[in-house]
């Protein structure tokens, strides 16, 4: 029962989401430091502060605040940002496309390169290409994406200044976007100069984000490919006259993908979490960059909104991975 199984999985995510909302709400209410005092500065009178507290609903009891908050959430209202004085939902929707484009781009790099590395390594098993791939993967895994990003900035931005290291678009380019999905939108509108510039700016942050997932994915996929290639069906295909590459691509890869997808699923959520830092390093105007500003400014509604957004993304990603697994592995479909 595929659909029922998947529906169940989706329903199971609801308590998780509720848990995240509750924990975040409680955590952020025990924060030391008064957000209102930070926003008003020393010149404010007690009446002003009282007025603002009432405006943001901070004068009520915690449980009342929670109930009101849940009610607003259910209506899709995430509140008003204290530092930017704008609707949190709008702020997030304005930044989310930026992060989504970067994330998808990084994912594609990671999956594409990871699968290629695994196939090449498995094809030349126990020969020098596999040894080289193994050591490259070892080096990539040992260094976190944060450091790769900085290393790229130093090497490709300063020593050999070929790549842009700041922002999303060349400042010289004028572009009015309606959806914030610059890449897709500009390509559809025929502004290929913008598309090129956006892509060019994405490469370094995208690669830095992609490296850990690529390395872990390639390692897992290669070892499971190696296992699959020792199975009888692979030997049979081989004796039927298929070349080793054909056996890998047509027979072994599909089976080898199952453990690889399961094991790299968590890594994918780490990639999404990594955007927070990578966007900061590259001055990329996405959700993660805004999250750090929100934390520095103690902007509770905004922090809350961003965390819930990330939680929803993680839940969806996990669901997607389950879905892919179910498609790949028929045995799970009856689960």
């Amino acid at each position: 029962m595929t659909t029922r199984y998947l529906l169940n999985r989706l329903l199971l995510a609801l308590p998780t989401l509720f848990g995240v909302v509750t924990v975040v709400f409680i955590l952020l209410r025990v924060v030391p430091g008064d957000p209102i005092a930070m926003m008003t500065g020393p010149g404010a009178t007690p009446e002003d502060i009282q007025h603002l507290r009432a405006h943001y609903g901070l004068d009520r009891s915690l449980s009342a605040q929670f109930v009101i908050y849940l009610g607003q959430l259910a209506m899709g209202d995430l509140g008003t940002s204290i530092s930017l004085r704008q609707d949190v939902g709008e702020l997030i929707l304005g930044r989310l496309p930026v992060t989504l484009e970067l994330t998808v781009f990084a994912m594609l790099i990671a999956i594409g390169c990871g699968v290629c590395l695994a196939i090449v390594g498995s094809y030349w098993r126990s020969r020098w290409p596999e040894a080289i791939i193994d050591s490259v993967i070892g080096i990539i895994v040992a260094i976190p994406d944060f450091l790769w990003a900085l290393a790229f900035i130093l090497i490709l931005g300063v020593v050999i200044p070929v790549m842009p290291i700041f922002g999303r678009l060349d400042l010289a380019l004028e572009y009015q976007s309606y959806t914030e999905f610059y890449l897709i939108e500009s390509a559809l509108r025929g502004r290929f100069d913008v598309t090129g510039s956006v892509l060019w700016h994405m490469i370094l942050p995208g690669v830095a984000l992609a490296l850990p997932l690529m390395a872990v994915g390639a390692r897992v996929l290669k070892s499971s490919l190696n296992v699959e290639m020792t199975q009888d069906y692979a030997a049979l295909a081989h004796t039927k006259g298929f070349s080793r590459l054909q056996v890998i691509l047509k027979e072994a890869l599909r089976n080898a993908l199952i453990p690889a997808v399961t094991l790299t699923g968590v890594q994918l959520t780490f990639l999404i979490g990594g955007t927070v830092l990578i966007e900061r390093i590259f001055g990329y105007p996405g959700l993660g960059n805004m999250a750090i500003d929100a934390v520095i400014n103690r902007d509770l509604p905004l922090i809350q909104g961003i965390i819930i957004t990330f939680a929803i993304i993680f839940i969806l990603v996990n669901f997607l991975i389950d879905l892919i697994n179910t498609i790949l592995n028929p045995r799970l479909r009856d689960g």
Partner: peptide
């Protein structure tokens, strides 16, 4: 299942 970077920033917040 939570990305450590995100979690640590929230915790420090």
């Amino acid at each position: 299942s939570f990305p450590a970077v995100l979690l640590s920033i929230v915790l420090v917040a």
